[in-house]
Each structure stands twice: as structure tokens, then as C-alpha cells.
């Protein structure tokens, strides 16, 4: 009774609970929030309190004193720290509603297609504990395809590759359902780790996750340039040999080399998915190609590499970072029509 009353006062939401970023779509308004999935926790007299969430917390990442912890509650697309994730969702709900209490919205959260029942239940319970009156789950590839505007309900095959922060989802969809889906725990985070490892190995320089992400965004490439070193960038970190801060220049070619492994894993996942695709659907995919969504789609030349690895046309969605959030939001807006793609763990 009370829940339905507060529900009436609340705006229903769709949340793309990503490893790197969380996007919130509010019914009738669109995407209203896009913040990093980072929570800063301060320990005060033995009690943990949320200090900052989102952009503010990300600024603290790797720069915190002893009593503050900047935590990313999601790893590999699923919840790694249940309590912190709950606090983060609670914060986003309050931020969207501009008040602290009397909010109990209906929430649709997307989950990786390869997540286990336990992981899905953790996400659902986390959203419910954060104050949702009802929680539905939607699989990420379906949300990404809907958000990219693919004809997922038609009797034609569509292939979507959603490269997120923690996972890469490869799926073939037709007639409103997922025909085949493959989820690999390779994404933006793994790319960052690969860059860190490469620079440490080749330059004896230790850089942080934020720096690695910045390098990836600026000069990251899935394949080395045809000639020369390509674009260059100055990076700063700690020299592992003598322990002092150091600055050096890395090139696009070096970063491309460092990203070869995660990019190779993504290509492998796509190839495996194509191998498991029925001939009729494969024919449709040959005709129309693969659509890339997610932040990983913005990695330079990834479409080129995939095109040459698969021999298929590769398209980057119009707004790849928001595709999952937009698709989840559309499921919220047209809930009656799209109820087939929604699920719940209870």
C-alpha cells in the first residue's frame, strides 16, 4: 500500500549498471545521468559512510588517504561488492528524484547475458534494497540491440557486439529473442590492464587505471598504423627501477600492440558466435553486418579489424555509449509491448 503510494510519487527508471559507467534513464525524460560506477567510502569511528559517488568518487580513485576507499562495486559486469552497489544505486535514485525519501520507483536493470542466476539475483536484490518497488532485468545484448535501433523483432538475423567496461556481449537476435549469445569477460577494464602491463613490462613504468583509460581513449587503436608510430602521448607514472615519478612518450603503435590480446579475445568471441549461427541468420548477417555498441566500440580501428577478421560489414552504432541505456529505457517506456524481454528472479 505504502509502496504503491510512493511509487505513484516516483519516476520509473531504467539503469544500465555498467562496470565503468552507470546510466540512468527516466521514463518520459530520457537519459538523465551518466556517471562512473565508483563509490568513495570513508571510515568514521569504525562506521563506513558514503563520501562520494560517481564523477566525484572517480576523481578520488587511486588518490585516497587511508580512511577513504574509492571502490568500483562492479567487476566483469556483475556486482562484486553488494553493499557498496546498493549505496550507489540508492544515491542515483535520490539524485534523479532530487529528494532523500518517499521514492520507490519501478526499475529495469540490465544484466550480462552470461551472468549466473546468483549474480542476477544479487543485482535484483541490490536494486530492491536501494528502494525499488519492483525490479525487472533485461539482458544487455537485447537492450543494446533495441537501443541501436536494430530490427530485433523481425524474422531476420541481427548481430550485435556490445563491448562494455567489464564484459563483451556478442549476440545474434531474431524475432524478439536471443538466438545465440556469448559473453566474454573482456572489455574496457581488460584493455586498461593490458596497457598498464605493457608499459610496466616495456618501460618499467607503473601507471594507474585512470591514466591507462585516458591513454586508451586518446591514442588507443585495435591495430597498429600502416606506417610509422602513429599518434603519440606523454604519460606519467612511477619508475619501477628507481621508484621516482617519471614521464615518457608512448605511441599509437605501442598501445595497439598492448591491446592485441583483449582485441583478439573479442574477435575470437565474434568468430565463435558466427560459427554457432544458423545458416539463414548467417545469410542475413552477411547482408547487413555486425553492429558495435558500448564504449569499447569507440576504440580506434576496431571496426576495421573486425571487418577484416570476419569479412563482414561492421557498423558502429550512432551513440554506442548510450545504446544499452536507451534500449533499457525503451523497454521501460513500452513495457507492455516489450514485456517478453524482461525477466525477474522471483
Amino acid at each position: 500500500m505504502f509502496s504503491s503510494l510512493t511509487g505513484w510519487l516516483s519516476s520509473d527508471m531504467a539503469i544500465d549498471l555498467g562496470t565503468a559507467n552507470t546510466l540512468v534513464y527516466v521514463k518520459g525524460k530520457g537519459v538523465v545521468l551518466n556517471e562512473p560506477s565508483v563509490v568513495a567510502i570513508a571510515e568514521d569511528k569504525g562506521r563506513k559512510k558514503v563520501l562520494a559517488v560517481g564523477d566525484e568518487a572517480k576523481m578520488m580513485l587511486g588518490r585516497t588517504p587511508g580512511y577513504i576507499q574509492a571502490i568500483r562495486p562492479l567487476r566483469d559486469g556483475v556486482i562484486a561488492d553488494f553493499e557498496v552497489a546498493e549505496e550507489m544505486i540508492k544515491h542515483f535514485i535520490r539524485k534523479v528524484h532530487n529528494r532523500r525519501s518517499f521514492t520507490s520507483p519501478l526499475i529495469i536493470v540490465c544484466v550480462p547475458s552470461g551472468s549466473t542466476a546468483v549474480e542476477r539475483r544479487a543485482i535484483q536484490e541490490s536494486a530492491e534494497s536501494a528502494g525499488a518497488r519492483k525490479v525487472f532485468l533485461i539482458e544487455e545484448p537485447m537492450a543494446a540491440a533495441i537501443g541501436a535501433g536494430l530490427p530485433v523483432t523481425e524474422p531476420t538475423g541481427s548481430m550485435v557486439v556490445d563491448i562494455g567496461g567489464g564484459t563483451t556481449e556478442v549476440a545474434v537476435l531474431s524475432l524478439g529473442g536471443i538466438v545465440y549469445a556469448r559473453s566474454v569477460r573482456v572489455g574496457g577494464d581488460k584493455m586498461d590492464e593490458a596497457i598498464i602491463a605493457y608499459i610496466r613490462r616495456n618501460h618499467n613504468l607503473l601507471i594507474g587505471e585512470s591514466s591507462a583509460e585516458r591513454i586508451k581513449k586518446e591514442i588507443g587503436s585495435a591495430c597498429p598504423p600502416e606506417d610509422g608510430e602513429g599518434r603519440t602521448m606523454e604519460i606519467k607514472g612511477r619508475d619501477l627501477m628507481n621508484g621516482v615519478p617519471k614521464e615518457l612518450v608512448v605511441s599509437e603503435r605501442q598501445i595497439a600492440e598492448s591491446l592485441a590480446e583483449p582485441v583478439g579475445a573479442i574477435i575470437e568471441a565474434v568468430k565463435v558466435a558466427l560459427e554457432h549461427t544458423a545458416p539463414e541468420l548467417a545469410a542475413d548477417i552477411v547482408d547487413k553486418g555486425i553492429v558495435l555498441t558500448g564504449g569499447g566500440a569507440l576504440l580506434g580501428n576496431l571496426d576495421y579489424v573486425l571487418r577484416h577478421a570476419t569479412g563482414l560489414p561492421v557498423t558502429i552504432a550512432d551513440d554506442p555509449l548510450s545504446c544499452v541505456a536507451l534500449g533499457t529505457g525503451r523497454a521501460l517506456e513500452e513495457m507492455q509491448k516489450l514485456q517478453n524481454v524482461l525477466s525477474t528472479m522471483y
Binding site: 535501433g149 536494430l150 547482408d287 547487413k288 553486418g289 553492429v291 569479412g311 560489414p313 557498423t315 550512432d318
Partner: peptide, 26 residues
């Protein structure tokens, strides 16, 4: 790796012959 008929459709402005909005934009 895009079929020539689609490229010709883009050149000739026959947008209805393209497979769909997201694909056409790509």
C-alpha cells in the same frame, strides 16, 4: 565488405533500398 548495391543506393539516394536505419548510417 559492404554490398555494392547498398553503396550504389547511397550514391543514387535510394535510401529505402538500404537494410535499416542503423545499418544505413553505418
Amino acid at each position: 565488405r559492404i554490398r555494392a548495391i547498398y553503396l550504389r543506393a547511397i550514391e543514387e539516394g535510394r535510401f529505402n533500398d538500404l537494410p535499416g536505419v542503423p545499418y544505413a548510417i553505418g
